[in-house]
């Protein structure tokens, strides 16, 4: 009685393309699920020849890497697409970017080479605008946070409420002033489990120094990548982005 999908199994994956994209402006309010749904529709509109999973409800094979939280903007989100037909990554980038709403902007595309994308990412650089907070106030709070060994915060995750340490994830924090009433916090954060997000850092600043911004802060992720000794981040697409990689993409077409 059990039915099976008719016809041959889905075509195999012949190419994997990695994308860096931005989540900007009002689209920072998209959740990861919203981004994923919007991407799937964009991929259909751009007629990207996706590889699909098998079964009665086939899904396009898309691998997401650590999404920025709802409300946070980003210049450095990463995703990997599995394709059934070899394409020129530059053309794919342009077509997909045109098919996505303004604010979800595809910035780079490269054919995957070598190691997995997730292995190349273990840190993020963030910049957080803090309207209503003066720079000296922020500086003092950050100094207090960095002076501690452990700062526990609590947050509701999908596995329930969790307590975790923020301090150990903080690699670097720099304070600047946009003007007298708006401070800027720039920081590099190591990816831990659960991931320490900008709002966790702000919670921690509240815990250690009573910093409580009256206006919601505006976080933007600037970079993701492998943390180097000098506390900078290695571009995760750099190993994919070379002439050999592009040639490989074309030669098998």
């Amino acid at each position: 009685m059990a039915r099976r999908p008719e016809g041959p199994p889905p075509p195999p994956v012949v190419q994997r393309v990695r994308l860096r994209f931005a989540k900007r402006g009002r689209l920072r309010f998209l959740s990861h699920r919203d981004v994923a749904r919007t991407f799937e529709r964009g991929l259909r509109r751009a007629a990207v020849p996706m590889a699909y999973s098998a079964g009665f409800s086939p899904h396009p094979r898309i691998s997401w890497v650590g999404a920025a939280p709802t409300g946070a903007a980003s210049e450095a989100e990463y995703v990997e697409l599995a394709l059934a037909v070899v394409v020129d990554p530059a053309q794919l980038r342009a077509a997909l970017d045109a098919a996505l709403p303004p604010g979800l902007d595809v910035l780079e595309a490269a054919t995957a080479q070598g190691t997995g994308l997730a292995e190349r990412i273990d840190g993020s650089r963030w910049v957080v605008r803090l309207p209503g907070v003066a720079e000296p106030e922020l500086r003092a709070a950050v100094a207090e946070l960095l002076g501690r060994d452990v700062v526990q915060v609590e947050r509701a995750t999908k596995d329930g409420r969790r307590r975790f340490d923020v301090r150990a994830a903080m690699v670097l924090a720099v304070c600047r002033a946009e003007n007298d009433t708006c401070a800027i916090l720039e920081m590099v954060v190591r990816h831990t489990t659960p991931a320490v997000r900008p709002d966790d850092v702000l919670t921690a600043l509240g815990v250690v120094a009573g910093l409580r911004p009256s206006v919601p802060p505006e976080p933007t992720r600037l970079e993701q990548g492998r943390l180097r000794e000098d506390r900078t981040l290695a571009d995760p697409l750099a190993p994919d982005r070379n002439d050999a990689g592009r040639l490989a993409g074309r030669s098998s077409a």
Partner: peptide, 11 residues
């Protein structure tokens, strides 16, 4: 999705 413009033609 047949005849993908990404593959075969200008977008």
């Amino acid at each position: 999705s047949a005849g993908s413009p990404v593959v075969t033609a200008p977008v």
